[in-house]
Simulated scan of single mutants.
Amino acid sequence: MSRSAAVDPADPVGYFIEDLTYHGKTERTRESYERVLRRFEAFLPERTSPKTATHRDCMAFVHSLRGDVAESTVATYAAYLHRFYGYMTEVGAFDGNPMTLVMEEMDETVDKDPARRDIPIPAMREFVRGITHPLHRAIVCTLLKTGMRVGELCNLDIRDLTITDPEIEALYELGTRPALADRPNSLYVTPDASVGEELNGEVRTASNKRKRATVIPVDDELASVLKRWLAIRPDTLSPAEPLFVGTAEGWGERIEPQSVRHIVEQYARETGWYRTGGGAGENVTPHYFRHFFTTHLRDRTGDRGVVKYLRGDVADDVIDTYTHNWGDQVREAYEASVYRLLDGRSPRV
């Protein structure tokens, strides 16, 4: 988006909501934004407006939400405010985005590389074998085999997956993404999913943090696990055809991050890998699986570039190099090195 001539609306929130209408956002999306932004507006100190608010005002607002709403909702509200400021800055109505620093600080509240529980592959293999529910095993295996974030997993649609299997291809129209046309047995992770935004006909409740699209190989083991899940996956009313949907509460509805965290916690507790009050260094969570993937695949491949590409870490030279040489540099390295979760065979067997 290019910067337009400066504007100075008397009601910045109203201006932003009106522009959302022009951009084709749904009424539900507009109402969600306006509810959050008006709440922020009312929170600000006297004689402070959204235009003059500082990063400390924004930080205080985000802090005021904690204890009142769920942490996932806090993140959603912060994302709405960040997007509002980003847009108003881009059109010249505001001088800057005070939420940028706040969002960076929120990301830093989770230690990026704490001292974590050291789980060897054989122990993780036993953990996975103890998960027999097809949905739960598919979720855990996908996280462990791809290193994707929990929100990215929740945002996967049927169109983001290719599996070369006649039985599954007869049930679903898989892999309709153009980026998957010549990449069989793969998962596509989009950078375009944002909380409150419509994607593929459905308003999303989780965001993908990737700045660039990533195509992740699906090995035979993960393909088998996903096939078992897809064989019993409930029908859904969503036009987006989510890959993972509920089988208990929220039957047929897109799985949400909190549900994934609950599933992982359930099995981790049973294994002795999760304790109430335990920190990131002790508890096994979906984010721990990303750490596990990074550590073991990096050690096995010896190629930090491939691992960075698969994780979706932002670096244009990394992304471009491995995108253009995907078959040779990504799939071959991945399939030669990725650990087994259901048996002890070497990756190439």
Rank of each mutant, 00 (worst) to 15 (best):
A213C: 09
A213R: 01
A213K: 05
A213L: 05
T214W: 07
T214N: 11
T214H: 07
T214K: 13
T214S: 13
T214D: 08
V215F: 02
V215M: 11
V215S: 08
V215C: 02
I216R: 00
P217W: 07
P217V: 09
P217T: 10
P217I: 11
P217H: 14
V218M: 08
V218I: 13
D219L: 07
D219H: 04
D219W: 11
D220E: 15
E221K: 11
E221I: 12
E221T: 12
E221N: 10
E221Y: 00
E221F: 10
E221V: 04
L222K: 08
L222H: 07
L222R: 02
A223C: 14
A223N: 02
A223G: 15
A223H: 07
S224L: 12
S224N: 13
S224P: 00
S224I: 09
L226I: 12
L226K: 03
L226T: 09
K227R: 14
K227M: 06
K227A: 11
R228T: 14
R228C: 00
R228P: 00
R228F: 00
W229D: 00
L230H: 03
L230R: 06
L230G: 01
A231C: 06
A231G: 04
I232E: 12
I232M: 08
I232P: 00
I232Q: 08
R233W: 01
P234K: 08
P234W: 05
P234L: 12
D235M: 09
D235K: 14
D235L: 14
T236V: 06
T236R: 01
T236Y: 04
L237M: 14
L237D: 11
S238R: 07
S238L: 03
P239I: 13
P239E: 07
P239L: 08
A240C: 09
E241F: 04
P242R: 09
L243Y: 07
L243M: 06
F244I: 05
F244A: 02
F244Y: 08
F244Q: 07
V245E: 04
V245G: 05
V245T: 08
V245F: 05
V245K: 07
V245C: 01
G246H: 05
G246F: 03
G246L: 03
T247M: 14
T247G: 12
T247R: 15
